[in-house]
Amino acid sequence: MTETEPKTAEDLFRFLDSLNIAHSTKTHPPVFTVAESESLRDEIPGGHTKNLFVKDKKDQYFVLTVEERATVDLKTVHKVIGASSRVSFGRPEMLLEYLGVVPGSVTVFGAFNDTGGNVTFVLDEDLMKHDIINGHPLSNDATTSIGRDDLIRFLEATGHPPLVLKVTD
């Protein structure tokens, strides 16, 4: 496996197992929007996530992981997350290079592919009220459920100690 080849869901699950982090994954048809994924709610308990891949003018990259129905004010969120300027969405090429995923599959679990530490991960305070957090395991045709505290342990183990901040309205 080369450095640039994104890791797979199976690699992610092995990594979680190596950390003794309990996780469960449910496969489903690919979902690209929150609306499409809402059909899965009855089957998968916990907080469901929406992930925004953004950057500031100095090319600092962030993944904002929030509850799926929450809104993020992109005009002001930079003040909360410590960006140098207003943020805009990151380009798909950078998403693939840093997190190993394509648009529609942005996930907090992408930290696993960011071996260069290029991205800061921000978890919304409201999302972290859930005991279980759900995210795509590097592709949007499955949902992986993990404990809130284990998600933080996972991020720390990938070298991405997360910022837990109030980033939603």
Results as ranks from 00 to 15, higher is better:
96 L>D: 07
104 G>I: 14
22 A>Q: 13
145 S>Y: 06
123 L>Y: 13
102 V>L: 07
89 F>C: 10
55 K>S: 08
95 L>N: 03
120 T>M: 05
94 M>Y: 13
37 S>V: 13
78 H>V: 13
16 L>K: 01
29 P>V: 15
137 P>M: 05
46 G>F: 09
79 K>W: 02
2 T>K: 02
121 F>A: 00
56 D>A: 01
67 E>W: 13
141 D>T: 14
78 H>N: 12
70 A>E: 14
156 E>K: 15
62 F>D: 02
71 T>M: 02
7 K>L: 12
134 N>L: 06
50 K>M: 06
116 G>C: 02
36 E>I: 14
13 F>H: 04
7 K>G: 08
10 E>H: 08
104 G>Q: 12
169 D>P: 09
55 K>N: 09
144 T>N: 02
3 E>L: 14
22 A>M: 11
159 G>P: 10
146 I>P: 05
129 K>A: 07
119 V>W: 01
55 K>L: 06
15 F>D: 00
72 V>C: 04
149 D>Y: 07
63 V>R: 04
106 V>Y: 02
169 D>L: 11
29 P>Y: 14
39 S>H: 04
158 T>V: 13
45 P>Q: 06
127 L>R: 11
86 R>H: 11
45 P>W: 09
58 K>N: 14
116 G>Q: 06
27 T>C: 08
47 G>D: 10
110 G>C: 05
73 D>P: 01
9 A>C: 08
152 I>A: 11
1 M>K: 09
143 T>M: 06
134 N>M: 06
28 H>F: 15
162 P>H: 12
24 S>R: 14
94 M>C: 09
40 L>G: 03
148 R>K: 15
144 T>A: 05
89 F>R: 09
167 V>H: 00
2 T>G: 06
94 M>A: 11
73 D>V: 03
157 A>Y: 06
106 V>M: 03
55 K>Y: 08
1 M>F: 11
60 Q>E: 10
36 E>N: 10
61 Y>M: 09
33 T>R: 14
163 L>G: 08
69 R>I: 13
120 T>H: 05
98 Y>W: 07
147 G>T: 07
143 T>N: 03
110 G>F: 05
119 V>D: 00
108 V>T: 10
57 K>S: 07
155 L>R: 02
42 D>W: 00
132 I>D: 00
40 L>R: 10
20 N>E: 07
145 S>E: 05
73 D>F: 00
167 V>W: 00
107 T>E: 04
10 E>S: 04
98 Y>Q: 10
69 R>K: 14
67 E>I: 12
31 V>E: 12
23 H>Y: 07
104 G>P: 14
125 E>R: 15
42 D>C: 00
88 S>C: 07
167 V>C: 05
6 P>L: 02
83 A>R: 00
22 A>F: 03
59 D>H: 03
62 F>S: 02
30 P>Q: 15
57 K>P: 02
143 T>A: 04
39 S>W: 03
40 L>Q: 11
58 K>G: 08
97 E>W: 03
79 K>A: 08
159 G>T: 09
6 P>D: 00
14 R>C: 06
160 H>W: 08
114 D>P: 06
54 V>K: 00
88 S>G: 13
20 N>G: 04
151 L>E: 00
110 G>L: 04
93 E>M: 13
65 T>C: 13
1 M>G: 11
